[in-house]
Computed example of a mutant assay.
Amino acid sequence: MEKTKIGKRFEGKVAIVTASTQGIGFSIAERLGLEGASVVVSSRKQVCLFVCLLLMLYKNVDEAVENLKAKGIEAIGIVCHVSNAQQRKNLIDKTVQKYGKIDVVVSNAAANPSVDVILETKESVLDKLWDINVKASILLLQDAAPHMKKGSSVVLISSVAGYQPHKSMAMYGVTKTALLGLTKALAAEMGPDTRVNCIAPGFVPTNFANFITSNDDLRKTIEDNTVLNRLGTTDDMAAATAFLACDDASYITGETLVVAGGMPSRL
């Protein structure tokens, strides 16, 4: 698909995108940066005490920043596991120290550590799903909100699975359903100065969704279940996010935009 020409809707803006060293998150950071934003990217992976893994995580972040800078994008990278309070604070503090403000926060980090049905899911897995997929967005915004002024914007990344959780990822889907309600609640709480919206991506071939999209039969079933007869792309999700985050959507808040090629997507 030929990429649409883009403008400069984020000139002078500062954007934080979590889980943004690859996949949908990286494409979002790239899109915002190409439209003029100074972008702060971070790794969603947990930092381990082993030095070799820690170095690998910094390498992931550094490579993402280098890729963005190679396209003329102003960017910095910060290692941050969103369920770690100190690392969340560090992400916000370093952004403000560098750029003096925060205009856009895109909360993209998510986990799906199990394919068990809900009633067989271990409590530790339930806790991880809740902590990363829901609670982390709230806690991150608690840190970020004091630095977000009039005209700022938040975009939460949910999923089409939030509308109809699939049995192999049911509890993940439930956490994504929670983000639909969180979007409404935060929009009321953070308005009128900050708008809060959400996108619900369909199935996109990324490392995160590889166990689904790499299965030819399942992929064909998903494609047949869309009106457009294809899977989504990371660029599709980035374009939708950029629209909701920019001033073109200045009269939109508390809404979820389903970006799933026409898949069934209503509660």
Rank of each mutant, 00 (worst) to 15 (best):
F10Y: 04
V14P: 01
V14R: 01
V17G: 09
T18A: 08
A19R: 03
I24Q: 10
I24Y: 01
S27A: 15
S27M: 05
R31T: 09
G33N: 08
S38T: 11
L53T: 12
L54R: 14
L57R: 14
N60V: 04
E63F: 02
V65I: 08
L68K: 13
A75L: 08
A75S: 15
V82I: 14
V82S: 08
V82C: 14
K89W: 01
T95Q: 03
V96R: 08
Y99V: 03
G100M: 12
I102Y: 01
D103Y: 02
A109G: 07
N112L: 12
D116S: 15
D116C: 10
T121K: 12
D127C: 05
D127W: 02
L129H: 14
S137Q: 13
S152R: 07
S153E: 10
V154Q: 02
L156G: 08
I157W: 04
A161P: 00
Y163V: 00
S168G: 00
S168V: 12
Y172C: 09
V174W: 00
V174I: 14
T175I: 08
K176E: 10
T177I: 04
T177V: 03
L180P: 00
G181W: 04
G181E: 09
L182E: 07
T183Q: 04
E189D: 13
P192S: 10
P192Y: 07
I199D: 02
T206L: 07
T206C: 08
N207V: 05
N210A: 15
N210W: 08
T213R: 02
N215M: 06
D216M: 11
D216V: 11
L218N: 09
R219A: 07
E223D: 05
T226K: 06
L228V: 15
T234E: 13
T234Y: 02
T234W: 01
T234F: 00
T234S: 12
D235A: 10
M237K: 05
A239P: 00
G254Q: 04
V258E: 09
A260K: 01
S265F: 10
R266A: 10
L267N: 12
L267G: 11
L267S: 11
